[in-house]
Design a protein around this nucleic acid. Structure first.
Lengths: 136, 136
DNA sequence: CGAGTGATTGACGCTTACGTAAACGTAAAG
DNA sequence: CTTTACGTTTACGTAAGCGTCAATCACTCG
């Protein structure tokens, strides 16, 4: 275990297996994300040690996946979170990226709402058919 | 062209190129979906002719893709739309599927809302930093 | 008739996102 | 000391989702 019981949040660490269990992914997956530069855990000797920052990032990555983003897109999103202030060009670029992502997400939400409406309609039809069957 | 001008909606047809242009996908993509059983256009000789039903299905497929569903998942979803009444087992199965999809979609919407909130936060920081730079 | 234009079917290639061994290291427990 | 648990790298495999030819056919326009 990453250790102990009552550590302040910032001191806790996790093993790769602990993270895998908590987020229900395989070790392979976590290592793959590292390979792609999405995670950079500490190394103690050869062993990977994950800090709260790494854990948060993994959470963000998986949420991005649920949303259907590619790992490349996720990389740019996740990196936005801990970007340092930087120079003006950087900031403008970041703001631009944020705008794009927001537009994508809002489109997705519309897609979801439409789909939910249609599912409800299909469900209604289904239940009606079921009623008819059971009366017969 | 699929023909004419003022046909009742149900009579219009489209060529593969027209559909590709309208939805901004390649011919290859459309044929691939057919290969996977997601589309079944009419054949006039060797040529594919798309009816309104096919066009609608393509729209559903692409929306499914935007939502990050796999083609397999999309197939089951899309097929729900034109499922015939069928027997009780079928209907129960369908209702179950609907429930699952709905749960997935609602999770996704939560993901989106969280992400949007966080993006707004990052944006706020960004704009603040930009302000600071421009005062200096 | 010849040149385009737009369609068709293969067939091979490529990227993404991992799965799945194989072969090895290390450290605590029985 | 050997087993067991947990970790490591290297590397090949695979499924999904198309891109990209190549070869061929059908129709129309000048």
């Amino acid at each position: 275990m990453g250790y102990v019981h009552n550590d302040p949040v910032d001191l806790r660490t996790w093993s790769i297996a602990e993270l895998a269990a908590e987020y229900d992914v395989t070790l392979r997956t976590i290592r793959f994300y590292e390979d792609r530069g999405l995670l950079t855990p500490e190394r103690r000797g050869t062993v990977r040690v994950y800090h709260p920052r790494d854990k948060v990032r993994l959470g963000l990555i998986l949420r991005g996946k649920r949303l259907g983003f590619s790992l490349d897109q996720i990389a740019t999103i996740v990196d936005m979170y801990d970007a340092e202030p930087g120079e003006e060009g950087q900031l403008v670029y970041l703001l631009d990226q944020i705008g794009r992502r927001r537009a994508e997400l809002e489109q997705r939400r519309r897609d979801i709402d439409e789909t939910l409406l249609e599912l409800a309609e299909v469900e209604r039809r289904c239940q009606a058919d079921l009623q008819d069957l059971q009366r017969a």
